[in-house]
Each structure stands twice: as C-alpha cells, then as structure tokens.
Design a protein around this nucleic acid. Structure first.
Length: 693
RNA sequence: GGAAAGGUAGCUCAGCUGGUUAGAGCACGGCACUCAUAAUGCCGGGGUCGAGGGUUCGAGUCCCUCCCUUUCCA
C-alpha cells in the first residue's frame, strides 16, 4: 500500500539565519522523508518561515525597513542552507502569506462557532513612550525574591524564581527605558480548559504509537495539573502595533504569532498544491481533499522546547475546527544539539555556523552521517564533538564503507573488464541482503537512525572481513583462480551496493553517484535495489575524502564566539572559498605570502570582555598606531600576564565587526590536537611596528 | 519551587518485559597483511553500570532516598 504522507519541520523564526540546530532537525526529517520515498510512498515535505510577532516587528523597525522587507530578505537567504545540506523540501513558504491569513481566520471562525473563544479584559504592562503593550521579555526590573537587578519579567536568571512581570521591583521597558504602566485591554482566549478539549486531548495523548512516551508524560503533566499548575486558557490575541494576521471584526487586534505559526504548516501545503508542485509529485487531488482524506498521514518533526504548542494547542485547534482539518498523526520530538557539551545560544549564535561549514569545503554528508549515527527516537540531546566527528566519518564512511568499493573494484576493472560473476548460491546471497535491508528498514521507520547506522557498519565490517579472509590479492597472481577472484570481488561489490542503498537516505548525493556512475543505473537507488545482484561496474572513481582535523579547527576558530554579523553572506565574499576549501596544506607563492602584513606589536592593555567566554580585548601598540583586537585566548592567558608582551599581529586583516566592537587585526597563536594555546612572541630587541617576514 | 528526560569502559553509545563471566565502535598496546587516495584483519588491556538503601534464588534492568546534567513551567 502506498502511504500518503505530509511531513513538516518546525518553522524557523524569520529574524535571522538558520543555525546548526535547525539543520539538525531538517537532516533528521530529511533522512526519514528520503527513506519513505525510497519505499515508494508518496510524500510531501514542506516548511515555511515563521514571519510574525513582536521581535520581527521591532527588528525591522531598528533596521529601518518594513517587517515584510525583513522577512523577504531572510527568506531569500534560506536556499544555500537547504541545497548545501541536501535537504529535500518540496516547498518552502511563509506564514506572512494570503494562504495563512485565510486559513488562520477560517480556523478562528470555526473555533468561535464551536463556542471555544471568549473575550476578557486583562491588565498588562504598557510602554507609554513606545505606545505598545510589552511582552514579558521586554520588561526588566529587580527580582522580587533575591533582589538581583535587571531581571526579565517572567523569571529570575539568578535565583530562577518564576513570577509575573508585575511582581518586579522598579520595572522598566527594555525598548524605551520608560517605566511601564498597567493598562487594560480586551483579549481573546481559546478555551483550552473546556471539558471537551481536555477529554479530547487525553484521548489524543493516549493513542498508542502516536507520540513518544516521554512526550506523553510531559504533556499529561500539563493537562492534568492542579492548583497553580492547572491547565489555563490560551491568550490568542495581541494589540496593535503588531506584525500579524488581523482578527476579523476586531479592529486593532491580531492573532498571537503562535496561533498562525502551526497553521502555517497547512498554508505551506496549500501553496504547494496551488503551485502545481503536488500534482507534479503525483497527487491529483486538491489541497482540501488531500487534507481531509482519512489515509493522509500528517507528521510534524519538532524540538522539545515546543511540545506544549504542538501537543495541546495545535491538536485541539484542529480537532474543534473540524473537517477538512484533521489532527496530526504523529509529532516526533527531538532533543537539542550541543557542541562540545555546551548548549547553543540562539541569541548569541554560538556553535557551528552551517554556512561556514560549507564554505570551508566540508562535505554535508559527513554531517548527515554523523548526526544519523547519533540520532534515536528518544527526546535526548545530542552532542557534536569535533574529535568524535573526525573519528566516525573517517573510520566508518571512508575506512569501512567506501574502502570496500575502492579495494574490490580495481580487480574487476583490471582483470574482468568490469564484469561481475558469482560462484555458488546467488539466491541465498540475495536473500541475505534482503534480510539485512529489512532489519535496517525497521530502524529507519522507527527513527532509530543510530541503530540503522550500527547495523550498516556491522555489515561493512563483515564484508571487509570476508574479503580479507579470501585474500584476493593472492588469487590475482594465479590465473587459474580467476573465477574465484571474480567471485570474491563481485560479492564485495554486491555488498557495497547493498550498503549504498541502505545509506542512501543519509548520503543521497553519494548514493546517487554510486548508482549512476559506478553501477551504471539510469536512476537513483530504490529500496528494492538492496537485494538484487549487480552485474557489472564502471571504473571506480574515488567517492569520499577523509575529514582533515584542521577543517574542524577552522570551523571553530574562525567563528568568533560573538554573534555573527547581521548579514553573514557578506562574509563569504571576504573569504575566498577556494582558498579555504583547499585547506591549510595548500602551497602559496612568495608573492601571496607577501600580501600578509605581519607586524610586531606590544600589548599595552588586555582585558576581559563581559559576556564573552573566550575573548580578550587587547590594545596593541604597532609603533605608528594603536589598535583594538579581540583574541580568542581567554582560556590560556590571564589578562595581567599579557600586558607589556611583544607579539605578532596580522596588520592588514580586514576589520571584523563583532558584538563587542570592531577587531582591527589578529594576533598569532599556536594550537594543536592537544589542549593549549600559545601566543607567538618576538625576541628581545624587536620594537612595535617592525615588519615580520 | 514543580515536573520531564538522562547519568553504563578515556570518548560516543547499545543493553526488550530482571537470569549464565556487562557489549560495540573509536582511541590505546601488540601481531598480520598489502588489494585499497593508506585502508583492512586478528589478539589484548580497560567498567564496583552516579551514590546509598531495599525487593528477589538472582538487578545495569523493579522500589525508595540522595547527588549531578539537560530541559519545560504557556
């Protein structure tokens, strides 16, 4: 039976570029999606920019553009990420769209008709200077519990007490600095606490197989809480000024962004249908027919931070809006990505820059494999560890998998003109392959990618072992044993093809190359290719290079721990990709070297930078002028110990704007595989400003 | 503060409803091999399964308490 599946990933907020956490989620979903497509199922994979809300409105204002201009610019920057990491979305849309306006207003009208919306006047802080109501995060003040200053309006970061913004002592607006005043306004509420909602959600959560057990536990906690933890109704309106969808017949009122964001999944799907892409993908029905059909599976991949919205509000909205709306079949939740054990900071943009990864010439499939190897169906955080990354990719993908083709193909090409031939029972060989494929299929289906990768690599180990045991390099020296040699190599290449099919959801680019170039197929692999025995090959071309550990260094070092500049694409022009991609080992001419202006500098001042974990702010005397340079050497040096030292600085490096100021150069320091960072020094006698060559 | 998830070899992780001497990969040490963009094969060292109690003939696996990590609290 062909399944009809509609898959989404969480909509990224359109106030900035995608970070590595987004990419992880998309890769997880993409692997599953590609796996289902390989099974022959009909699948529609869509996503959109989440464009509404106060943060985008304010950011646009600060940049002097309209919110529409801001989100259009952000949307235009998505493509390099999606293509670069082989993310096979069928369509990418926006919540700031006519489809979403129409659908959101329709859902709202149906909820009103169902008696689940009511109005109530509430008092909220209002910024009299800015002329707008303030969300909690725009209000700061003194913590009522521990009296720490400058705490946000929802919780204290120092003592982690949770409170209301009105509890703050001496509150002020972070937008204008003004003291906020309480002001009443009528808000619209979705009656989530209505008995029929609660009854439905209990049933929804308890449906076997729908959700991960950990997620059900968490959601049930919210649903059945009592006292202060009791399930409350949901405030779905915001007052003007607000960038959002107007509420019908309610001037000056807009839908809260979290109402129209999930509806954006459907808006993206509708746009995909209306654009004709669904038809091109084999779906003849209309959007509404498809959405309403009983056999349409609606599946969302999300992170653990937005469980609340996706497992309470979203299904309740859909349920009581009624047909053609249908509740999600599954909401698959993943944990967060940490980097070297540290959590990413969305606001500070720490971690790995996805574009930087690509610019360095790093293979997207390395990352896809690494993440697949560590992903499972649980809601667990996943750590990106550079050493682990290098080891896994080099050992598994290059040493085990690619090596099989590399070592077997040359015999076939040289001795048998590309022709494969098997001795013994080929049906058994095919049956064994089918059994392996079935086992891996189960793991993929259940999103146990780590298990799938372990099974696949165990198979690669066996293939290498069998190949070794029969010593084909010995057979090759004896013409009488040619048939035996051909059999050994054919079996290895059959195994390689099987591995390639099984890895295709993770390594789509490589698998396509193997299918088309090495095995000479006229199409990409389908899952059913796993068991069939290949008959001939084309000459082997190398399939994948090893990760150079220096690339990981570059990935982390070149990226300042501060926020990336507002327009990261500009940075790509400054760093010639070709040079970076060639790696640190590429030779350069003396003329190229001369372009780098190295100078002796005296560190006249060194100080820590508030809010930066790794940076020191250095004031350098270069003889003729004085420069400010931010250096990522805090881990290795006390500021006091640096004062007065001579060091070497790249004097003609383009200034780089960082969160903390402009860095006008770079000091040189040595580092290696082992921890430690060592600043270069000039011998006594050198004076600031001297040229180094 | 309330709650959820997790804490297993140096690192990354498997261990289903409790059952023989706790597993894999990587890293490390030794050996072998040469077909492979230097990779593979074999052997080995290494863990009181966060801590402490308890249930049981038997617990990494169940119960209780505590500690640590991550996250959520609309």
């Amino acid at each position: 039976m062909t399944r009809k599946i509609f898959v989404t990933t969480a909509l990224p907020y359109a106030n900035g570029p995608l970070h590595i956490g987004h990419i992880m989620e998309y890769i997880q979903a993409d692997i599953w999606v590609r796996f289902q497509r390989m099974q022959g199922h009909q699948l529609h994979f869509v996503c959109a920019d989440d464009a509404h809300g106060a943060p985008i409105m304010l950011k646009a204002e600060s940049e002097g553009v309209t919110p529409q201009q801001l989100v259009t610019r952000i949307a235009a920057g998505r493509r390099p990420y999606l293509e670069g990491f082989h993310l096979s979305f069928d369509h990418w849309h926006s919540t700031d769209s006519p489809e979403n306006t129409q659908l959101s207003q329709d859902v709202y009208a149906r909820l009103v008709a169902a008696g689940l919306v009511y109005r109530k006047s509430i008092e909220q802080f209002y910024d009299p200077v800015k002329g707008m109501f303030l969300a909690d995060r725009y209000i700061k003040g003194e913590c009522p519990n521990c009296h720490s200053p400058d705490q946000y309006g929802d919780a204290c970061e120092v003592c982690s007490t949770v409170y209301a913004p009105t509890d703050l002592i001496n509150p002020y607006s972070t937008l204008s600095g003004a003291q906020p005043v309480l002001k009443a306004s009528e808000h619209f509420f979705f009656r989530l606490s209505d008995p029929k909602c609660v009854a439905f959600l209990k049933e929804w959560l308890d449906t076997p197989g729908r959700l991960q057990p950990q997620v059900v536990n968490k959601a049930r906690e919210w649903l059945t809480g009592s006292g202060e933890q009791a399930l409350g109704d949901w405030d779905i309106s915001r007052d003007a000024p607000y960038f959002g969808i107007p509420i019908p017949d309610a001037p000056g009122k807009y839908f809260y962004v979290w109402l129209d964001a999930p509806i954006g999944y459907l808006a993206a799907l509708q746009s995909y249908f209306d654009s004709g892409k669904a038809r091109a993908n084999g779906e003849r029905r209309t959007f509404t027919e498809f959405l309403a059909a009983a056999d349409t599976e609606q599946i969302h991949f999300i992170g653990k931070d937005i469980i609340y919205f996706h497992n309470l509000f979203w299904p309740a909205m859909l349920k009581f809006a009624g047909p053609p709306y249908k509740v999600p079949d599954h909401v698959y939740v993943h944990g967060f990505l940490t980097v070297s054990g540290e959590k990413l900071s969305k606001s500070r943009g720490t971690g790995i820059s996805p574009l930087r990864y690509l610019e360095l010439g790093m293979n997207a499939e390395w990352l896809r494999y690494y993440l697949a190897a560590k992903l499972n169906a649980n809601v667990e955080d996943l750590d990106f560890n550079p050493d682990d990354f290098v080891a896994r990719v080099n050992s598994d993908l290059v040493g085990k998998y690619v090596n099989i083709a590399s070592r077997a193909a040359s015999f076939i090409t040289r001795h048998f003109n590309g022709q494969l031939a098997y001795q013994g029972d080929t049906e058994q060989l095919a049956a064994l392959a089918a059994a392996h494929a079935f086992q891996v299929q189960q793991a993929y289906e259940n999103r146990e990618f780590g298990k799938a990768m372990r099974d696949i690599m165990a198979l690669a180990d066996r293939i290498n072992h069998d190949f070794d045991a029969r010593q084909p390099w010995v057979l090759a020296k004896d013409p009488a044993r040619a048939a035996e040699l051909q059999d050994v190599c054919s079996r290895a290449l059959h195994g390689f093809k099987l591995l390639s099919v099984l890895l295709a959801p993770v390594l789509p680019h490589l698998a396509a190359h193997v299918a088309l170039e090495l095995f000479g197929l006229e199409r990409r692999f389908a899952w059913s290719d796993a068991a069939s025995l290949p008959e001939r090959i084309n000459p082997y071309q190398h399939l994948m290079t090893r990760v150079d550990a220096k690339m990981l260094d570059a990935l982390f070092e070149a990226e300042p721990p501060a926020a990336p500049p507002p327009v990261p694409r500009a940075a790509s022009a400054a760093a010639p990709a070709g040079v970076a991609a060639a790696g640190a080992v590429a030779q350069i001419s003396i003329d190229e070297f001369k372009r780098i202006d190295l100078r002796v500098a005296r560190i006249v001042e060194a100080e820590t930078v508030a809010g930066a974990d790794k940076l020191l702010k250095l004031t350098l005397d270069l003889g003729s002028d004085t420069r400010t340079v931010f250096a990522g050497i805090k881990s290795a040096y006390e500021p006091a110990a640096l004062k007065g030292r001579l060091t070497v600085v790249v004097a003609n490096l383009a200034p780089r704007k960082m969160k903390f100021g402009v860095s006008q150069g770079m000091v040189l320091a040595a580092s290696g595989e082992t921890p430690g960072l060592f600043l270069l020094t000039a011998d006594a006698g050198a004076t600031p400003g001297m040229k180094v060559s």
